[in-house]
Amino acid sequence: MKRICIPSSGAASWQALLADPVKHWRTGYSARTLAQCWEAADGLPAEVAALFGSDAELLIAIPEHKVSLRDAGRESQTDIFALIKADNRTIATAVEGKVNETFGPLIKDWFAEPSPGKQQRLKFLCDLIGVRCPPPDNLHYQLFHRTASAILEAERFKTDDAAMIVHSFSPENKWFDAYAAFVQLFGIIARPGELAGKPMRDGRTMYFGWASGDPQYLSM
């Protein structure tokens, strides 16, 4: 993982950071749509800011940020890692962009052949985010490691809290049910446009939110 971040010159700067810069950079898909939206905002997009309150401020945003999960496996590549200040607290935030794409494999599929490495990783993720292991197998693995990456970066940057935000540009809020099922693990009833938190063992609060993006960016 590179430690030096180059300032963006516009949405096109994000393309080279993708795992597949050709396949993933398509009009109407999440990577390009998210980049267009955040670049146009020059700060927090209004719908994301609304989750955190009237004084919410973007301190820094890093596209396609890779977070080590403290093992030899693949890093968690967060669409945007953002440091947000709100109510005089700093929040390490993992932003997952979505249009119509799924949240990837379910636990039952990802863990179908539980190698020692996968067993170690799943236990680490569950312990870190504070849920039982193994978790329900109908939940999406991506949401586990994306939440964990926010907590790990909160520890590393010594922020007050952490957050995992889905920034969706789907007019039908596609895959909201999958997100809602995941946050129910924490006793949270999910609603679009609302932020909900769960106190963690380390004293921080882990926040979850679903922000509905402006559809104008789907055509850019």
Results as ranks from 00 to 15, higher is better:
Ile60Phe: 13
Leu83Ser: 13
Asp71Ser: 05
Ala86Met: 10
Ile151Ala: 13
Ser8Asp: 09
Leu143Glu: 03
Val99Thr: 10
Lys118Pro: 03
Pro21Trp: 09
Glu113Lys: 14
Glu75Trp: 03
Ala35Cys: 05
Glu113Pro: 05
Ser76Glu: 04
His145Tyr: 15
Pro116Gly: 10
Asp71Ala: 02
Val99Arg: 00
Arg146Phe: 02
Thr90Phe: 04
Trp14Cys: 02
Lys118Phe: 02
Phe144Glu: 01
Asn100His: 04
Gly10Glu: 12
Arg89Trp: 05
Ser219Ile: 02
Phe144Gly: 03
His140Trp: 02
Glu101Lys: 05
Glu155Lys: 02
Pro7Gln: 13
Ile80Phe: 15
Glu153Ala: 05
Asp160Cys: 14
Asp177Phe: 11
Trp25Pro: 00
Glu194Val: 15
Glu39Tyr: 10
Ser149Val: 11
Val95Asp: 09
Gly73Met: 13
Tyr207Ser: 15
Gly97Cys: 01
Val166Pro: 03
Leu106Val: 05
Ala61Pro: 03
Ala163Val: 14
Asp160Ala: 15
Val22Met: 08
Pro114Phe: 03
Leu17Gly: 08
Leu143Thr: 04
Ala41Ser: 12
Val67Gly: 02
Ala82Trp: 11
Pro136Thr: 08
Glu75Asp: 14
Lys98Gly: 02
Gly97Arg: 01
Phe186Asn: 01
Asp202Trp: 00
Arg89Thr: 14
Arg70Cys: 13
Ile6Phe: 15
Ile84Ser: 10
Gln36Glu: 15
Ser168Arg: 01
Ile4Trp: 12
Asp55Ser: 11
Tyr207Phe: 15
Glu39Pro: 08
Ala19Asp: 09
Arg204Gly: 03
Phe208Ala: 13
Glu75Met: 05
Ala178Leu: 12
Pro171Trp: 06
Leu58Gln: 10
Met206Tyr: 01
Ser30Val: 09
Leu122Lys: 08
Asp87Lys: 15
Asp55Thr: 04
Gly187Trp: 02
Asp42Lys: 15
His145Lys: 13
Ile129Gln: 12
Glu101Phe: 07
Glu153Asp: 10
Thr33Asn: 00
Leu139Glu: 06
Val131Ser: 04
Arg121His: 06
Val67His: 02
His145Gly: 07
Asp42Asn: 15
Ser8Gly: 11
Thr90Lys: 07
Lys108Ser: 11
Lys174Asn: 13
Gly104Arg: 13
Trp14Gln: 04
Ala49Met: 08
Ser168Ile: 03
Leu44Asp: 15
Gly213Arg: 00
Arg132Tyr: 00
Ala56Trp: 04
Trp175Lys: 14
Thr159Met: 11
Asn138Arg: 01
Lys2Ile: 13
Phe182Lys: 07
Leu18Lys: 09
Ala178Met: 11
Pro135Asp: 07
Ala46Asn: 10
Pro199Val: 07
Gly104Gln: 12
Phe208Lys: 14
Ile62Arg: 09
Ala46Asp: 12
Ala190Lys: 13
Ala72Cys: 08
Leu128Asn: 11
Glu172Ala: 04
Leu34Asp: 02
Phe52Lys: 02
Trp25Leu: 01
Glu47Gly: 00
Ala190Trp: 07
Glu153Gly: 03
Met220Glu: 03
Ala190Tyr: 08
Ala12Pro: 04
Gly28Val: 05
Ala50Leu: 03
Ala148Ser: 15
Pro135Val: 15
Asp20Trp: 05
Glu75Cys: 07
Asp79Gly: 12
Val131Gln: 05
Arg74Thr: 06
Pro135Phe: 12
Asp71Asn: 09
Ala154Glu: 08
Gln119Val: 15
Gly130Phe: 00
Gly28Glu: 07
Ala86Gln: 09
Arg26Thr: 14
Ala211Trp: 00
Arg121Ile: 02
